[in-house]
């Protein structure tokens, strides 16, 4: 009996999501680079402070717009199920632990990924928790703090209520640190498909490749 592998293409990433993702990817890289330049002008001298601030602001607004498109898309689409958390704790923890074991151990042993992506369930439990936190908490906070810093005078009331420019900037920097550390990890995790570039490719084409085991006599 031969066992063959059938490749099944599943349309996981709709066009708006792909546009949003790559806009986000480029934007976040630019924000991190310009953020580094703004904060460490004494160490890094790629562009002037003025240029880096201007670029940082433009990119920030583009990403805010991009985020709103993402939000609108998911709020008006049944694909929002992708972000709906597993509300049964036992199942959530079991699935999350299985996924962590796979990434931390099974993947080295050739085990199969316990999560199989589908249009309405494209994230594994760890991804779902991470992206829910990022998209619904971290990113909005970062955009909001960035907006306040963009024109601290215009938003002086809010800035003061939140503890002043220094406090708002500290929050902004803390999440900047998070994104700076997260981005390379995220890019690496994207190489954990059936080939190192499979997930990258999917994020361009929209189609993830799933392997089906077929028996042939």
């Amino acid at each position: 009996m031969d066992v063959t592998m059938n490749v099944k293409k599943i349309y996981i990433h709709p066009l708006p999501v792909r546009i949003w993702h790559w806009t986000n990817a480029i934007g976040f890289v630019l924000l991190i680079l310009t953020g580094l330049q703004i904060r460490y002008r004494d160490i890094i001298g790629l562009v002037s402070f003025e240029t880096s601030v201007r670029l940082h602001n433009y990119v920030g607004f583009v990403l805010m717009g991009s985020y709103l498109i993402w939000l609108f898309f998911y709020l008006t689409s049944d694909k929002i199920k992708n972000y709906q958390m597993e509300l049964r704790p036992r199942k959530f923890y079991t699935d999350a632990i299985n996924q962590a074991v796979y990434y931390g151990y099974g993947i080295f042993r050739g085990s199969t990924n316990p999560h199989h992506a589908s249009p309405y369930d494209k994230f594994n439990p760890m991804q779902k928790l991470t992206y829910d936190l990022i998209m619904l908490l971290v990113v909005p906070i970062q955009f909001l703090s960035g907006l306040l810093l963009w024109d601290a005078q215009r938003f002086s009331g809010a800035v003061a209520a939140l503890g002043g420019v220094r406090t708002v900037d500290t929050v902004h920097v803390l999440f900047f640190i998070f994104f700076s550390a997260f981005l390379p990890v995220h890019a690496y995790l994207a190489t954990l498909g059936h080939t190192p570039l499979a997930h990258f490719k999917a994020m361009f084409t929209g189609y993830e490749e799933e392997f089906e085991h077929a028996k042939r006599t």
Partner: peptide
Amino acid sequence: VVSVHGFYALGATR
């Protein structure tokens, strides 16, 4: 952070 939170210069007073 609590005493002079109203004055902050990006990059300089980090």
